[in-house]
Design a protein around this nucleic acid. Structure first.
Lengths: 231, 231
DNA sequence: AAGCGTTATTGACTTAAATCAAGCATTAGT
DNA sequence: ACTAATGCTTGATTTAAGTCAATAACGCTT
């Protein structure tokens, strides 16, 4: 069936593993990739501790990854958007290191690690892109560390919005207006803030005319002012 | 000269890239690796923005990596011990993403990225270990995120000491007694705490008999109690 | 369209850690 | 060995953000 989804016609290809592969090479990659059944909101994609046999690439929708602390509380460590690849942090010992849950209806591709490794021996571009994607995640994670350690609640939230905005832009979506698929509590958890603080700062940013927030919908009215607030 | 340092006789080989390579394969890896000139305390290994042509493996000593914030302040994002490989976060665009500075006299190996990539096409074990090491770093970074976001100053510092202890153990050094090559200010910066808070908590842990601290020297007296304090 | 559970907002109060300030200790350099 | 500089500790005070509490607004499900 030609209507099936393929890397060759996937709009996220430039962010995902096919980046820099030739059409023929992309076709090769495509043969090892399967579509995963669609997830509904709250469905778990992977459990922490589960054997890691596949990486997952997000086609549409979004997810959050979290670990559990000693009292069973969530510690959100990532939000995944289309084009993101999930599972790299488990390659160290072949186990997923976190729970990953859909925030809305979500479509995914399933990439068998075994075949991916074999193919990467053959394709230098794929090898390079694998390292690039992991490196990017590592860099993002370390940058976030710096941000959280050294910035106020307002700076963290401004940074969160600016980062989301630019991620949407990369994905060909509007960077000015977007929907927060996660709750305020999720945002707070991710940024190390209480829900109340997130809420208060959002209303304050709105009063200052920097953003307009209507429930889950965010409009960035003055990107440059918002960016200035991250520093 | 046979007294030269080689991967084949390096005590850090099990943590570093040679892990899981056969003696012959390790020898191949060794041929592309150069020794770097020794660094003295405060010497910079790399500057942020500098072209990334080599990864660096720590042979002995230690370093810190940091970025600069908008006011020129350090944001420490990593401490590197022997066996660690430095530079992975720059593969995304071929630039180092942080400053890396020696905390004491430090010996390093220099690994040309170009040759490493070529060799990894040939050696599946090397490919795997590259991904493992990056994955481990990614996991550590995300775990730290969770720790900092959701834990008190005491929990953060206890976690820091426990983590350091287990890293020293992995390296065949004492996990009970070790030297902090970084200053209290560095620790605070890394954990998102003020120097004063770090100092106060260390004295408090000492009064409680969990650790004994004499300037830079730390003795962990009751590891299990310290571990309990991280939760 | 009504009603219930979840999610978000807002206000009053508390607290953990930052900041400010001063003195002490260790290290490095002449 | 002596001095300067850097690093560390301890105490007093302030403050940003957390907690507690109450209400309001969504958004499912029937």
């Amino acid at each position: 069936m030609t209507s099936h989804i393929h890397c060759q016609n996937c709009s996220m290809a430039t962010l995902c593993l096919p980046y820099l592969l030739s059409p023929e090479q992309t076709e090769k990659l495509d043969t090892i990739i399967q579509r995963h059944r669609p997830l509904q909101k709250r469905d778990l994609l992977v459990n922490s501790g589960q054997k890691l046999s596949f990486l997952y690439a997000v086609r549409s929708g979004s997810l959050k990854s979290y670990t559990l602390d000693s009292q069973g509380g969530e510690q959100i460590i990532d939000f995944h958007l289309p084009g993101d690849v999930i599972g790299f942090d488990g390659l160290i010992d072949g186990q997923h290191r976190s729970y990953t849950q859909a925030l809305e209806t979500t479509m995914l591709c399933e990439i068998p690690i075994q075949s991916l490794d074999q193919l990467s021996a053959e394709l230098p571009g794929l090898r390079k892109q694998l390292l690039r994607v992991m490196s990017g995640e590592l860099h993002a994670s370390k940058t976030l560390l710096g941000t959280l350690n050294h910035h106020s609640a307002q700076q963290r939230l401004a940074n969160f919005l600016v980062t989301l905005s630019s991620r949407f832009k990369q994905r060909g979506l509007s960077s000015r207006e977007f929907r927060l698929s996660m709750t305020r509590a999720d945002i707070g958890n991710y940024l190390g803030l209480s829900v109340e603080t997130v809420s208060r700062i959002l209303t304050q940013l709105q009063q200052d005319g920097v953003v307009a927030v209507k429930s889950k919908l965010v409009e960035i009215r003055e990107l440059e002012r918002l960016r200035a607030l991250t520093l």
